[in-house]
Amino acid sequence: MLFTLETKQVKAHPTRATGSTLVAKDAEDLTIVYNKYKSNRPRSKSQLCFNLVFCHGTGFNKSVWNYLIKVLYQISQSGDAPWHLDTVIAMDAIGHGDSSLANEGKLGGVYMWDDGAKDVNDIIKHEIATTGDMENNFETRTVIIGHSMGGFIALYAAFLEPALFDAVVAIEPVIYRTNETEARFNKSFKKLIGLMMDAFDTEQDARDYFEKYSFTKRFQPDVLQDYIADEIYKTKNEEGNNVYKTKCSKVSQVRTYLSSFLSIPKGMLALPSIRVPVFHVVGGDANWNARESVEWIRSAIRPDMLAGATNIEKGQHLVNSEQPDEVIKIINDALVKRDQDFKSTLSTIPEIGLKGDRKTLRDQQYNSLLNLDLDNVYGFDTKKHSPFDTSVKKANSKL
């Protein structure tokens, strides 16, 4: 095996949006379940080590990434990659996968996506504190990758705590809305609700739903089977008969979709303030996000932070599961670029350039600070970028 795999759990972030739980006190006792992959091979001394964090979209689970993770480990250990893949985390968001089962009977009608970003950051900090894995330092870098809602979560996690991350790969992120796009979504969503199913009489009925009728039928076969294996579970109904259900219930899907209306405005405001490199990936033929969202997102991100902008030919919104090999290539290219870029900037970091000499570092940094030479104060970002109208306008009022 290229790696070990362990399913773990940690407490979700305890401070959550109003309505997140049926009983307010339960917000302090929610659980997040995640898969942790760990390389079985050491890196060479010349290689920069990468950790990856994967965040899924609405209705999916942590195992939708399993195929991509396996291939990325193969690339890492083939000898052809300049980077080394160490630790990988793939989480089940609240109301999804095993996190849904762990919190059964507690969740309310709201799931703020920015709370999901806080959950991701808490997982990373838990791993750092308990195992020493997932560090983002001079030798090991952490890249967060997300699709759809997970793309929002990845971007917002980096906005909240940039020190935890080296870069973001956002695949078809849902992080743009207007009154018009919301109206269009509401019109089509009623039909989508009617097509959702979460309970079946037999396991074959459940498999047939995903393999033949749901939009998952276009998934690459390995991705689909990994997803189904982690999503369907056997239980009993109220009459005591065996039934097969999806871990992400119909209610959970509706909760997550509709909560986007509350969450997306926060993400739109956060984009210009993200201070880690962002790779923005969309399907060339995708239409879940509004067409104008692509240009808006890429212009909202600060130009020096937009590390890549890729349109996958013929790709749809679920491109990460339908064309995973193309997405793997993009992730690999992003890691190669980050490997090169980070190594090239190491000497510009005062701690590295001055070999950790505290007195020299203090004198250099404090003198620059006192002389208001902020360009030479490490970490003081003086570049400005705001795509929003910040002018003050007088509101018409009747006296």
Rank of each mutant, 00 (worst) to 15 (best):
residue 247 K to N: 06
residue 258 L to C: 11
residue 312 I to N: 05
residue 91 M to D: 07
residue 252 S to M: 14
residue 203 E to K: 15
residue 146 G to Q: 12
residue 288 W to K: 09
residue 40 N to W: 00
residue 261 F to S: 07
residue 113 W to L: 02
residue 109 G to Y: 10
residue 249 S to W: 07
residue 63 S to T: 09
residue 99 S to Q: 07
residue 230 D to K: 05
residue 112 M to F: 12
residue 391 S to H: 11
residue 182 E to C: 08
residue 290 A to I: 04
residue 348 T to R: 14
residue 385 H to N: 07
residue 233 Y to H: 13
residue 170 A to P: 06
residue 208 D to S: 14
residue 174 V to T: 08
residue 135 E to S: 11
residue 45 K to T: 13
residue 299 S to R: 13
residue 234 K to D: 05
residue 29 D to Y: 11
residue 311 N to A: 13
residue 248 C to M: 08
residue 26 D to Y: 06
residue 272 P to K: 10
residue 310 T to H: 13
residue 244 Y to A: 03
residue 133 D to I: 00
residue 118 K to D: 09
residue 146 G to Y: 09
residue 193 I to S: 04
residue 136 N to Y: 01
residue 309 A to R: 12
residue 6 E to P: 00
residue 37 Y to G: 03
residue 64 V to N: 09
residue 81 A to Y: 03
residue 302 R to N: 01
residue 35 N to R: 10
residue 294 V to M: 03
residue 340 Q to F: 09
residue 163 A to T: 08
residue 344 S to I: 00
residue 157 A to R: 04
residue 168 V to I: 07
residue 117 A to S: 15
residue 319 V to L: 13
residue 64 V to P: 04
residue 372 L to D: 11
residue 346 L to E: 12
residue 312 I to D: 02
residue 243 V to H: 03
residue 332 N to R: 08
residue 356 G to W: 03
residue 355 K to H: 13
residue 244 Y to Q: 02
residue 342 F to D: 07
residue 258 L to E: 14
residue 351 E to L: 15
residue 257 Y to M: 13
residue 252 S to C: 12
residue 69 I to P: 05
residue 277 P to Q: 10
residue 355 K to Q: 13
residue 94 I to M: 14
residue 316 Q to V: 15
residue 381 D to M: 06
residue 207 R to D: 04
residue 104 E to N: 13
residue 248 C to D: 05
residue 247 K to E: 01
residue 195 L to A: 12
residue 136 N to K: 03
residue 2 L to Q: 12
residue 150 G to Y: 04
residue 132 G to W: 00
residue 111 Y to K: 11
residue 141 R to T: 00
residue 327 V to M: 05
residue 350 P to H: 06
residue 60 F to A: 14
residue 284 G to Q: 06
residue 359 K to E: 14
residue 341 D to H: 11
residue 165 F to S: 01
residue 325 D to I: 09
residue 67 Y to N: 06
residue 371 N to I: 01
residue 60 F to D: 10
residue 59 G to I: 00
residue 353 G to V: 01
residue 235 T to C: 09
residue 182 E to P: 00
residue 203 E to F: 12
residue 173 P to M: 04
residue 361 L to Q: 07
residue 333 D to E: 14
residue 240 G to L: 05
residue 234 K to I: 00
residue 357 D to W: 04
residue 175 I to T: 10
residue 206 A to Y: 03
residue 310 T to A: 04
residue 35 N to F: 00
residue 100 S to K: 11
residue 226 D to R: 08
residue 225 Q to H: 12
residue 363 D to V: 15
residue 34 Y to D: 04
